[in-house]
Every structure is written in structure tokens, then in C-alpha cells.
Simulated scan of single mutants.
Amino acid sequence: MDNIELLMSFGLTRQEARVYVLLLGEGALSGYEAAKRLGISRSNAYAALAGLVDKGAAYMAEEQAVQYHAVSIKEFCSNKLHYMEELSETLERQIPKQKQEDAKYLTIRGRRHIEDKFRNMLKETKERVYLSVSASVLDLFREELLRLVAQKKKVVLLTDEEYSMDGAIIYRTKKFENLSGSADCEGDADGQLRLITDSNYALTGELQDKETSTCLYSANPNLVRLLKDALANEIRLIEIEKKDASI
């Protein structure tokens, strides 16, 4: 994503984002100057500047001619995140509580959506996590896993490389080899993942590029039990191989 698209994720329109980037780079500008620099009409420039002021991304300085100063990107994003957190807390209080999750099988498509679900499952873990995934994907969720370990929750990891995480139980497996293609190519498939939290929720599928990633999520006891048995059998095989190698 380029800077304009990233800023649009924070609630700016495309035109507002363009003007904001201009202000950040050029300093204080009038509406006329902004329109001239970007090659847009003055009415569009003033509308964008008014939007930036309204959304907390710019301030007005009323001197001989009105000029607009950009709020720093760090301050703007921090304020927006704080505001969204407040809205989130309000919604959680006001929206009716979700009914107990049923045992349907839900398909989650797209890498970002899968990663979001992954993080939320870890965040909501109460007792234990069993995770089978390549080390390259494991690194993406290291912070969340370390937090679980610090909270004295059981974390069992199966991954394809020697991996260090104090407090976690780690098994090295060969199952991910050759799933990702060349390690030097960005965007290659990271391979399969299997995640079980609290023996109640399961996420399984493939984490590849943005478009082709697909996973299945469910609280269905049959799926959870199936994945648990598969992981347990894999751990037994790893332990047997380690024991045989030591003889």
C-alpha cells in the first residue's frame, strides 16, 4: 500500500490524503498554494483542507492570509487510534451481547483477515494454545505468543526451524519443507497452519498471498478433536524420532 492508501485507512479521502502529504512535505500553505502545487481546483483544495482540519490532521493559522499547518503523522495517527479505542469501548457497552458461538464452519478468505482472526484467537485465549505453522509465520505473532507465555498460559508450537521462546514447548517438524518455495522470494506461500485455542476453537488452512489465502474457522467439537488428534500424533512421532536418534 502506498502512503495515500495508508492514510485513507485512517479516514481521509484520497484528495485529503494528497493535500496532507503535501502539507507534511512543504510546510504551511494557503488553499491557493495547495491547489497550484497539486494541479487541482481551489474549491477542491479548500474542501480537502477543511476536511483535514475537521479530522484533526491540520491546523489553521489566521494571519494576513489563512494558512494550513499539518499535524505530525505520529500525532494524527495516535489521536485517531485513541479515538477509535474509545468508540470501540462504547460499542462494546451498548451493542447487545453476541449469542454463544455455534458450531458452524466459517470460511475466512484473504491473508489480512486470516491474520486478524489469528491474533484475536490468541488474544482471547484463556488457558492453552496449540499451533503448527512455519517459522516465518510464527514470527508474525511472536509478540502475542510471548504475552501468553508471560501470563503462564500453555503454548505448544510445532514449526520447521530451530525456534527459541522461553516458556513455550517447541517441536521441530519437517512438514513445512518445500511448501513455501524459494525462501528468497517475497510473497511466496508460507504453507499450512493449524491453530487450536482452549480446546474449543480451531483455525486451519493456508496462509499464502493476499488473494489466495483461505482458512476454515470453527468451534465445532469434531473439527477441534480432529486437529488435536493430528497434532498429538505428530508430536508423538517427533518424540519417537528424537528418542531413536539418541540411541
Rank of each mutant, 00 (worst) to 15 (best):
E5N: 11
Q15A: 11
E16S: 06
L23K: 03
L24M: 14
A34V: 03
G39A: 12
S41D: 05
A47E: 04
A48K: 01
A58G: 06
Y59I: 10
A61K: 03
E62L: 14
Y68C: 03
A70N: 10
S72T: 08
I73C: 08
I73W: 11
F76H: 06
K80H: 11
L81V: 14
L81D: 02
H82C: 09
E86D: 14
L91R: 12
E92C: 07
P96R: 07
K97G: 02
K97E: 07
K99N: 04
K99T: 00
A103R: 13
F118L: 08
F118V: 10
L122D: 01
L131P: 07
V133M: 02
F141D: 03
L146D: 02
R147M: 05
K154C: 03
L158G: 05
T159A: 12
D166Y: 09
I169T: 15
T173I: 15
T173K: 11
K174M: 13
S180I: 00
S182N: 10
D184C: 12
D184P: 05
D188M: 13
Q192W: 09
S199A: 07
L203D: 06
E206G: 07
E206V: 13
C215S: 10
S218D: 01
L223C: 00
V224Q: 07
V224T: 11
L226T: 15
A230Y: 01
L231P: 02
A232G: 06
I235N: 00
L237E: 12
E241V: 14
E241I: 14
K243S: 14
D244G: 04
A245T: 04
